[in-house]
Amino acid sequence: MTILQVGALPVRKSRGGFEILLISSRETGRWVIPKGWPSKRLSDPDAAAREAKQEAGVTGKISRVPVGSYRYRKKTVEHIRVLTVTCYVLWVKKERKRWREQDQRTRVWFSQEDAVKKVREPGLKILIASLEVRPKS
């Protein structure tokens, strides 16, 4: 059984093109993107934007079309599950000083190259490495 999640790839303009915002995971502290469960009330892109707001304190314009997906393993007490995360680019317009999970996570902007080095999931590395976005004017 495939378990689906939605994720946001928060980006902003930089001198070299764009940067990607990564956050620390709550359990292991590894670098990840904001992600969570789809919603019955929200479209998948809007649910991904909600996760970015809750987990990273950022808001902006979310893409309506996914840029890709990746899989990762989530360990629970009982077993290991494989989850598939569908990802949407979020052009960050605002970074909040306070947000829901600020005491549980760290957020850091990275160049595309550094973000690839920081994340652990092979599929997420590939997704970030292949990401081509044009800064919104």
Rank of each mutant, 00 (worst) to 15 (best):
P10Y: 03
V11C: 00
S14C: 15
R15L: 07
R15F: 05
G16F: 13
G16W: 10
G16A: 15
G17V: 03
E19C: 00
I20V: 15
I20Y: 03
L21A: 05
L21S: 01
L21H: 06
L22W: 04
S24V: 08
S24W: 02
S25M: 13
S25I: 11
R26M: 09
R26S: 15
R26F: 15
T28L: 15
T28H: 12
G29D: 05
G29Y: 05
W31P: 03
W31V: 04
I33T: 09
I33C: 07
P34R: 00
P34Y: 01
K35V: 02
K35M: 09
K35R: 15
G36V: 08
W37Y: 10
P38K: 12
P38F: 11
R41E: 14
R41C: 11
L42Y: 14
S43H: 12
D44I: 05
D44P: 09
P45G: 10
D46M: 12
D46P: 01
A47S: 15
E51H: 14
E51N: 11
A52D: 03
A52N: 06
K53W: 09
K53S: 13
K53L: 11
K53N: 12
K53R: 11
Q54G: 00
Q54E: 14
V58K: 00
T59W: 00
T59D: 06
T59F: 00
T59S: 15
G60F: 09
G60A: 14
G60P: 08
K61Q: 15
I62G: 00
I62A: 00
R64I: 02
V65Q: 12
V65E: 14
V65I: 14
V65N: 14
P66Y: 07
P66H: 10
V67H: 01
G68C: 12
G68D: 12
G68A: 13
S69M: 02
Y70F: 15
Y70L: 02
R71T: 10
R71E: 12
R71M: 08
R71L: 07
Y72D: 01
R73W: 05
K74C: 00
K74R: 01
K75N: 05
T76M: 09
V77M: 15
V77C: 08
V77H: 10
E78Y: 13
E78S: 08
E78C: 12
H79W: 11
V82P: 02
V82I: 13
V82R: 08
V82N: 04
